[in-house]
Design a binder for these strands. Structure first.
Lengths: 276, 276
DNA sequence: TTCATTATGTAATTTTACTACAAACTGTTA
DNA sequence: TAACAGTTTGTAGTAAAATTACATAATGAA
């Protein structure tokens, strides 16, 4: 939740940002405050606070406070810690693992059931799938391709933006695009999605809450992660994206009933034996 | 909090006990209810509910709900559960995420510091790196390539076993191979490693404990994960492998001192901005 | 049975969250 | 730059929730 606020902060309206800042500055305090108190602190009106909550997919202020409270309760179990030069490799490993775990916990608490259901329905309705991701997200797209092509519909992943553009232009209304991007701001992916939509294709994005990419997609599966402590590529969001796509794929499989599940597990044994 | 309610339950007054029973019966529901709703459910008056909260050392109903919510958030964290056909997408997502989290916790608890230190030393001693992984592990190898090539030495990932063989044959004693395989039993990867060792290259494997691959490597970074519940490709071991390789890369970077870390974080910002 | 004490409920009050609408601001077209 | 549409924000009112004060009922000891 807190990560979600941070991620969404820049896409909020000006006065809502003030609210976000107040909450980020002292979440423990916010959780105990009334709308009025927060509104005063942020120098905005009370409805603005409610609008802020709604922008974060909460039905109201109470739910927002509840989610925030739960978020606060959970951190402390595994939490982010910066790596320092004096760390032993054991400490280093623990810190990094803790960070990764914490981010998955965060994602777990953020899953939007509604969007997920829609995404599953979109898969069921489509005839083929294209996965777009560049740079680090290319890895995720490829991983997802491995999953999706076992579900019975053609699935292909492209990492080169030029090829993405070209391929997106050739889609039709029976195609489903899954666009993967950590920030959701890369102009390449936005352009690709724009082209895909012109081709009438449906678009699911796996990206940050309220990012430009999320906003131009039919369905957004959001992955918000605190990347401050990542030195390299954003491993944590990578992991999050992979798991979210796994959830989608399993969701599709489960809707297909027992039969499909069994078939898949047989396929898995056969393939894994050879490849992994 | 929930424990507190249970403990206090018998010392409460009769009608407060009714409230306690309602809360214990369905805490998730209670956390979202109003005083009125709970009062009705327990067939008591609203002030009784408040008295119940006060009896539990809360200043009011709101604080009680908050504490209960935090309690709920903390408890029962993360264990494997099989997905069933009747699961809602929310349940499904939670089960899968929990499984993934549990597996990272497991990896965290079994990191072998000694092997990790050796691996870091081997990186420092080598001149170039080759990453081998096929099928699902190809994704991990690619991801690792992205990390390692920023550390200053050439790094390249191959997924095609034939090319792996050919490339391994051309290595020398200054080369470092990182071989990735979930099972550590695929004959392709074993053959590749055998060739690499004949070429005098050093070998780090990222695979299951005591697997054939682990046994023929100079250093084995082990990733053991309960895959029973994975329907598709082994996501969990995939995640584990990625994190373990991240640990290795960060470890290398940290040994390079503050200077290297800073340089990397600058590089990251530049690259991420464009690519992710 | 009566009285004191405790427990519970009723009804009023206050606080809080939320809604509807209007004003103010932003940016765009003529 | 004036007029406009669209968006953002605030004002004022409303509904609902939590809380209080007080009354009534239950309990139990003398």
């Amino acid at each position: 939740m807190l990560a979600k606020i941070k991620a969404a902060r820049d896409t909020l309206r000006k006065s809502e940002q003030k609210v976000a800042d107040v909450v980020i500055a002292d979440p423990e305090q916010s959780v105990q405050s009334s709308i009025q108190a927060i509104a005063t602190l942020a120098s905005v009106s009370e409805p603005t606070v409610i609008r802020f909550c709604r922008a974060l997919d909460c039905v109201g202020f109470q739910q927002f406070k509840l989610k925030l409270a739960q978020d606060l309760a959970r951190r402390g179990t595994f939490f982010y810690q910066d790596v320092t030069v004096d760390d032993s490799s054991k400490e280093l490993a623990n810190k990094l693992l803790d960070g990764a775990i914490a981010s998955l916990v965060q994602i777990r608490n953020q899953i939007n059931e509604d969007q997920l259901d829609k995404a599953i329905a979109m898969y069921e309705a489509c005839e083929r799938i294209e996965l777009y991701g560049s740079g680090g997200s290319a890895v995720v797209a490829e991983d997802a391709q491995l999953k999706f092509f076992r579900l019975g519909k053609p699935a292909i992943a492209y990492s080169d933006p030029h090829i993405q553009h070209a391929s997106a232009a050739l889609l039709d209304k029976n195609a489903l695009v899954i666009a993967i991007s950590h920030s959701g701001r890369s102009s390449d992916i936005l352009k690709t999605v724009e082209i895909a939509r012109q081709s009438q294709a449906k678009v699911i994005s796996v990206t940050a809450t309220r990012s430009p990419l999320a906003q131009v997609s039919d369905v957004a599966l959001t992955v918000d992660v605190n990347e401050d402590s990542d030195i390299f590529s954003p491993v944590k969001s990578r992991l999050g994206q992979m798991v979210v796509l796994d959830v989608l794929a399993v969701g599709v499989a489960v809707r297909g009933g027992d039969h499909m599940l069994e078939q898949l597990s047989r396929a898995r044994r056969a393939i894994d034996f050879k490849f992994v």
